[in-house]
Design a protein around this nucleic acid. Structure first.
Lengths: 110, 110
DNA sequence: GCTAATTTTGTCATTTAATGACAAGAATAT
DNA sequence: ATATTCTTGTCATTAAATGACAAAATTAGC
């Protein structure tokens, strides 16, 4: 069963990594080696005890033939969500952030 | 001229701090002392060369009689915006993050 | 213009957070 | 029950954020 990767609908990044890995029937050790990392740490990533290092995303996407932009978005949005959730910030923070990005773009390259 | 602080409409946090400080006619040195920090570093904050340390936000809000929640939102949204802007992430990242927060809340305390 | 006060910039030390690495225990599979 | 795979705990290492200080640049008052 292949996944349609552009409409990623996932609980969290760790679960997603695990699913991709299982689909290929790879062990943690194997995937960890491909990603040049410790299998123990990859385990922590899949179980949500650590975040996935953004620097390894290009390699990760290459391995699983995923769009880097999409995955970057997934990863970053997850970090944002965790921050907002665990620090009890109002969700309007995202509307604000959107405005601020627009402001940054408008005042670009001056 | 007093500012209505609940409808904070600001370019960026640094400019806002500077405005508040100028309104009180305080020097960098004075405000920095109140915030228990170096005036040189406060200068960098006001000119956008550094971020404001979130840990100092409660004290900051007390000094200027601001709502902590509002300011926290401002500060965090700015960090999000910078990340998205400087790493060229699509702005849909905020929609995604919102969904993920909802997911986290839904699966709360289990 | 001169002087003092204020602000900015540069640099390096210190602290803090993220990640790496390894060992040992727990769970799973054969 | 043995080997394999996965998880957990811990500590080392790395990288990022912040603190601290000196000196240059700017501004304000005279």
């Amino acid at each position: 069963m292949t996944r349609i990767l552009n409409q990623v609908e996932m609980e969290n990044f760790g679960d997603y990594v695990r699913q991709l890995r299982k689909d290929k029937e790879w062990t943690l050790t194997k995937l960890a080696a491909m990603l040049d990392m410790d299998s123990a740490n990859l385990s922590k990533i899949e179980t949500g005890k650590r975040g996935f290092d953004e620097k390894k995303l290009p390699l990760f996407c290459e391995i699983f033939k995923l769009e880097l932009e999409t995955m970057k978005r997934e990863l970053i949005s997850e970090k944002f969500a965790n921050k907002v959730y665990y620090e009890n910030v109002d969700e309007t923070v995202f509307k604000l952030a959107e405005q601020k990005v627009k402001y940054l773009i408008k005042n670009d390259k001056h």
